[in-house]
Amino acid sequence: MSREVILYIAASVDGYIAETDGSIDFLGGGIELVEEDTSYQMLMEKIDTVVMGRTTYDQVVNELSPEQYPYEEQMSYIITSHPDENSEKVIYTNQEPVELIQKLKEEDGEAIWVVGGASIIAPLVEAKLIDTYILTTIPTILGKGIRLFNEFNGPVNLKVEEVYVKNNMVYTTYTNK
Rank of each mutant, 00 (worst) to 15 (best):
E45C: 04
E99S: 15
M42F: 11
Q41N: 14
T49N: 04
T49L: 07
E4H: 11
I6E: 00
E161C: 05
S119W: 05
K166Y: 04
R3Q: 03
N168A: 14
E126I: 09
Y16V: 02
V156R: 00
P83I: 07
Y171R: 14
P123T: 05
I134L: 08
T20P: 06
T175M: 08
G15K: 01
I24N: 03
T175I: 11
Y71S: 09
N150F: 05
I146S: 00
V165C: 06
V90L: 12
V60K: 01
Y133P: 08
D37T: 01
Y40W: 04
L142W: 03
I138M: 08
I121N: 04
A122K: 13
I9Q: 01
G30K: 04
Y77A: 01
K159F: 07
E35H: 12
Y77H: 12
D131N: 15
S87G: 11
M1P: 14
V114A: 08
E126V: 07
D21M: 06
E107P: 11
G143A: 12
Y164K: 13
T93H: 14
Y77I: 03
V125K: 00
S119M: 10
N157Y: 15
G28P: 09
E99Q: 15
Q68M: 05
L124F: 10
S119Y: 08
P83Q: 07
V115Q: 13
E32K: 12
E107D: 13
P123F: 03
E106V: 01
P139E: 01
G117Y: 01
G29W: 13
Q74N: 10
Y171H: 15
Q68L: 05
K177P: 15
